[in-house]
Design a protein around this nucleic acid. Structure first.
Lengths: 305, 305
DNA sequence: ATGGAATAATGAACTAAATTCATGAATAGC
DNA sequence: GCTATTCATGAATTTAGTTCATTATTCCAT
């Protein structure tokens, strides 16, 4: 009943990677014959060809294509599991895979990273930003170990920890009419060009917390990839943007822009750290959350250098 | 370097599920000794205990807990992959990639699609219309599996099946001078505006089978993207077009247009389904050709509702 | 306490499976 | 055509996994 082995997945990947069975066999330190026997047996068992043999070359059938996709998904997880087991063995135990679900989070993360890496030199650090099934899905699927997000979710198996409060503000150029206003109201953006990161509107605070509740919109929305680019455009009067206040202050020397409060009360946000509850015991993970929680209490001190 | 096998994952799951190694061994149709040896070897290789042996019972270590979580995540994916490969084997699942070489073919295809998708719910369906090296080239290059074309080609490795006969007619508005003619001759289009799909003239039947043989042309040719747009323009007297008769009848309720025979004998065409001969064995492909062949025999019945 | 039942560990014998070796057939490129 | 390369195949061989038989431990009932 169970035919499929890790070795089959390794082989189909290697054949795809190296082009021929012979080359794949060398790469795997096996003979071409071994691969041929092994895969032929699998084909017999599942009852479908993985490759169509055309002349002396192999072409993946739909079934083969599917199996290759499966292999590309599963093998890295085997490799990662072995790595982590090795880390358990050496008592280091740690690849910290962090997922980011918001652009400003990334700027914040960079401030935490340096002190953490110093304190935990043996912990490998990976940051991912794209998730097929969202950040929460990535946590569950063990693609990541820690999720940085503004949207916590009440789940039994997950724990969310608030680590950073910030205010989302409007960024305008230093000669913009709104520059010295105490605050701005949605109507005042009606004729503006708004620069945003390339994400859906329902993930942009300026829409969900400011424009949309007032049923207002801007003249035009333009997406830019990077914060630098965004501030550059704003600085030279091409439009406005919405960013965390601390981020604007950070870039104050580089770009001459002003921050204006959004609405009469301001838009106040929190960043959360999500983690699988089972991992709350893991030392190097616990330490990261601890560091993050303590760090946000003195952001002004750190940024005053 | 690669220790971890599917069997290890199966074992650690079974031990957790059944409580003891002995029970797990029975469930897996192996002996207790086999499991003990197998897991012991893995522990030696990775250098860390998976269970702490407390008396005669096993308690998972942190490393073991991690491996169990990995197993619970990966094993179901193996099982699912095997199920899907089984579906491929039984011809239930595949990807049917269809290439279209003519615009009216597309309308025809849509009529086949619905019954086919119902009959083969697990077959993925893709339709492509642009080919770098033509439809035949796309078939050879395995870009597509099925080519819908009016131009069959005698090739050893390919099989072409006629699936649909139709008559290409001139479409005019309901107050056009030609509306009640028995047929139209090339000269009578000399002052007309002709709407066509955006393809080269040598792929347009009205040129290859009607105008060009008589060395005639129209006053002006205008291209439009869609059949709807084409009929709309014709209906309001902006020009004429050439379409399959059944297509015109299908749109008769929506647009008040008339069909007039092209020339004394009419322009009669066939649509062919091209397939690689090697694929004639594939169930879900065979079924599509079968369905297409049977469907065209009663087009009038279907369109009379 | 103590014997019996159940557990996992261990080493040797055995079995099955995977791998290699040697070879053949097909084919792409020169 | 010829050569080099590719994948397939069958038999021989090696490796790995499994069982068998046994031991040590421990849990539990008496």
């Amino acid at each position: 009943m169970t035919f499929l082995e890790r070795s089959h997945l390794e082989i189909i990947r290697a054949v795809e990677l190296h082009g021929t069975m012979t080359a794949a066999a060398n790469a795997l330190h096996l003979t071409q014959s071994a691969l041929s026997h092994s895969m032929r047996k699998l084909e017999d068992q599942i009852g479908v060809q993985l490759w169509s043999r055309e002349g002396r070359s192999l072409r993946l059938t739909p079934a083969g294509t599917y199996l290759l996709a499966t292999a590309n998904r599963l093998i890295p997880q085997f490799v990662h599991a072995e790595e982590r087991l090795g880390q358990f063995a050496r008592g280091e135990r740690g690849t910290l895979r962090i997922g980011m679900e918001c652009h400003p989070c990334y700027q914040w993360l960079q401030k935490i990273t340096t002190p953490y890496l110093c304190a935990w030199p043996l912990v490998d650090f990976e940051v991912k930003q794209e998730f097929q099934f969202g950040g929460i899905g990535a946590l569950f699927a063990h693609e990541i170990d820690l999720l940085v997000t503004p949207d916590p979710l009440q789940k039994n198996a997950l724990h969310f920890e608030p680590v950073f409060d910030y205010e989302q503000v409007l960024v305008v150029s230093s000669d913009h009419p709104l520059r010295d206003k105490d605050h701005v109201i949605p109507r005042q953006l009606g004729e503006e060009v708004l620069f945003t990161y390339p994400v859906p509107r329902d993930r942009l605070d300026i829409y969900t917390h400011f424009l949309s509740p007032a049923s207002r919109t801007v003249r035009k929305q333009k997406v830019v990839e990077s914060t630098d680019m965004m501030l550059q455009m704003v600085a030279c009067g091409r439009g406005v943007a919405a960013l965390p206040r601390w981020l604007v202050e950070e870039f104050a020397e580089k770009y001459t822009v002003r921050a204006v409060q959004l609405g009469t009360n301001g838009v106040h946000k929190q960043i959360f750290l999500g983690v699988r509850r089972a991992d709350l015991e893991v030392d190097y993970l616990k330490a990261f959350i601890e560091l993050a929680r303590n760090y946000h209490e003195h952001p002004s001190i750190e940024s005053d250098h």
